[in-house]
Write a protein that binds this DNA or RNA. Structure first.
Lengths: 217, 217
DNA sequence: TATTTGTGGATACACCGTACGGTAGCGAAG
DNA sequence: CTTCGCTACCGTACGGTGTATCCACAAATA
């Protein structure tokens, strides 16, 4: 089996899933494939092109759900698929929004999203579409990013309050006890541990409603 | 002048502004300060703590505008200040949402945002607040991130259409000419070059309206 | 004066992305 | 059958990174 872009991308994804983007190096991928590090550069121009490859593989999965009968269902499906993908591949959220996504599958997702949004009421001309697309993508990117980093810190500190205070405690609890951040303190202490998926869905429909119900300015 | 966290952060910010986050290294900061690389570790635990330091300096600037008479004005001011800061310090957008922002000034901004949002109509209990805060921050993070990467690619490819096609052309124009991405193609070709700040403001008020006008689910 | 303490510096390690030169096989041209 | 050019593979090497560790020297204390 003679090595290929697909195989390189696949093992790179496996390693990134296991050890994060920081733990991903050309050398490790090569070792995992049983070849010298430089072999990869016969198939890829840069490391960043390798990252683009990985990203587009993930987009391929997202693109699979991008065909729905109704525009709103399409948007919802894409957004949730993006979130799911980022939860499966946390490094994906690190790359999300950080570079232009121009791979064929990324373009397919962009096309499906744009086509869906263009059928929304209150999206009349192309400027409306551009704005709506921007708002939607901004929300998705930010929400996914936030959720992933939250999950990471929760994992590294422990999820319950006492463990959290023990980890960030010396600093953060002291900060919160200064009384200068009462609302934040209330959020940290009294805040229910909301279900992440429902929060995402809730906020997504909020944004979507705002997008479609709003009269032209 | 004996070196300090503030001075380190200040020159690190200067270097990052000039050469980006990738071009920032402990050694270069040290050289700029005229000391050995290891001196910095007397003031900072990690490089990531150094990044946290830089981030909090930027938050200090944002926090300055966080006191407005009306809750909506406060939110708008913070959002725009965040965007301005990210445009001045593009590396800031790379860090935005990527790690928890726990510096004193970041907490101050978070407090101000939370306090403002808690006064919005339709934000009744603490769960409402948490959701609204999440939605708002998600949008801001994503929007800023998108705008910065867009500006970067525009800078590296040239802004007008022909230069853009010349740069991405061999690949992207071929992609668009396949006809598989008609909506995206229309956006790229017919899309007016919208004013970025107005788009941000427009989408921000859209999100904010959606946040406040929406009845409870 | 002798001794402790802390501060700045140099060196070293493990790792990174990748430029470069070289070689072994193989199909086509002479 | 020989020889050429080409492709696919390989190893080594360079300049960079973050940071652990040791060391020298100066100041302060006993």
């Amino acid at each position: 089996m003679p090595l290929s872009r697909d195989k390189i991308a696949a093992t790179a994804i496996r390693l990134a899933d296991a050890h994060g983007l920081d733990g991903l190096s050309v050398r490790k991928i090569a070792k995992e494939l049983g070849v010298g590090p430089m072999r990869l550069y016969d198939y890829v121009l840069n490391k960043s092109e390798l990252l683009d490859l990985m990203v587009d593989v993930v987009y391929a999965r997202i693109a699979e759900v991008a065909q729905q009968p109704e525009w709103r269902a399409t948007v919802l499906a894409i957004a949730h698929a993006t979130r799911d993908a980022a939860l499966d591949h946390e490094w994906f959220s690190d790359l999300l929004g950080g570079r232009p996504h121009l791979g064929p599958h990324a373009l397919a997702v962009g096309e499906a999203t744009a086509a869906a949004l263009s059928q929304a009421p209150s999206v009349h001309d192309i400027d409306d579409l551009q704005r709506a697309l921007g708002a939607l993508n901004s929300f998705i990117i930010g929400a996914v990013r936030r959720e992933v980093t939250e999950r990471r810190t929760a994992r590294s500190t422990g999820t319950d309050l006492t463990a959290f205070q023990a980890s960030l405690g010396p600093y953060l609890t002291r900060m919160l006890e200064t009384g200068r951040y009462p609302t934040v303190a209330r959020l940290v202490i009294d805040g229910t541990h909301l279900n992440a998926e429902e929060t995402f869905k809730h906020n997504l429909t909020t944004v979507l409603d705002g997008l479609t119900s709003r009269p032209r300015t």
